[in-house]
Design a protein around this nucleic acid. Structure first.
Lengths: 144, 144
DNA sequence: CGCCGATGCGGGCATATACCCATATCATGA
DNA sequence: TCATGATATGGGTATATGCCCGCATCGGCG
């Protein structure tokens, strides 16, 4: 009886399609985090990418793509946006084919100022979901 | 102790950021459904949108945006892509400001042929997640 | 009945994302 | 050392998505 079942939510109806539901959830949470990060001028995708860069040190675009589970070309473009914003620096590696990415000073600063804003969004989501759902989310994401 | 905890998955590491995790999950499932739908030439976003159009009958762009929980301008563009593909028709409503969308014959046909492919992807996801996670996903999405 | 705020869209602009092809650089075997 | 296959990017193309602004149409009030 799963077909054509719907879930009422704050907003409109969530589809019975798992994928559509996930996409909607991703869009909604993205909007929440993006708004929280407005004061520091970056969005959640950029925040997440910058954290990955910070953790990895000076990854190449290909390495970063693997870490972020994104297409390499996507990483290249996203990183260029951050470069234009002065938040990261792109340099040629020892292997001249490679482009290594590092956080610029402004990037570290932005990341530091963004952290509490991000944490605020995290807390809001956590409160909204409740502990049980949180664990479920983790399990679910791990399985996907 | 939630900060800086990670989950190992098939692929890379899933962030402790709920939003980043959801975005990753959405991308991954999108890829799965998109591949399943390749034979009929549409992607999961288009499939979902077409189903909403079919269910709504002849919604205006604004109505469709409300149903899909998407920005109106996004709906306008996505619908135009479907129109170029010959899958939907856009007409001016009684209110000349409104643009009403209906499935074209080819759209109904594509939707019909897509259904079993979509169901296959649904089943695969369901199997991968297991019943418990499924319910958790629904609960979670409802709360978001 | 005409003016004005409200409503519905389109288009401009920007990011995120993926796929494919061309180019540059490496690395390795002959 | 040199040709060749492998690897790292960049750029083209296309969809998805959101925000903002301008234009056209509606509707109701004076």
């Amino acid at each position: 009886m799963r077909a054509y079942t719907h879930i009422m939510t704050n907003g409109p109806i969530l589809s019975d399609c798992y994928c559509a539901a996930l996409r909607t959830a991703a869009r909604r949470s993205t909007a929440i985090y993006d708004e929280a990060l407005v004061p520091v001028g970056i969005n959640i995708a950029q925040f997440a990418l910058m954290r990955k860069i910070a953790r990895a040190g000076a990854p190449s675009l290909t390495e970063l793509a693997a870490i972020a589970d994104l297409d390499r070309s996507t990483i290249g473009r996203n990183v260029r946006v951050l470069e234009r914003m002065g938040l990261v620096e792109i340099a040629t590696g020892a292997d001249q084919r490679e482009a290594t990415v590092t956080l610029a000073a402004a990037g570290h600063d932005t990341l530091r100022r963004a952290l509490p804003l991000w944490q605020g969004a995290q807390d809001r989501i956590e409160t909204a979901l409740g502990g049980v759902s949180i664990d479920a989310l983790r399990t679910l994401l791990g399985a996907l």
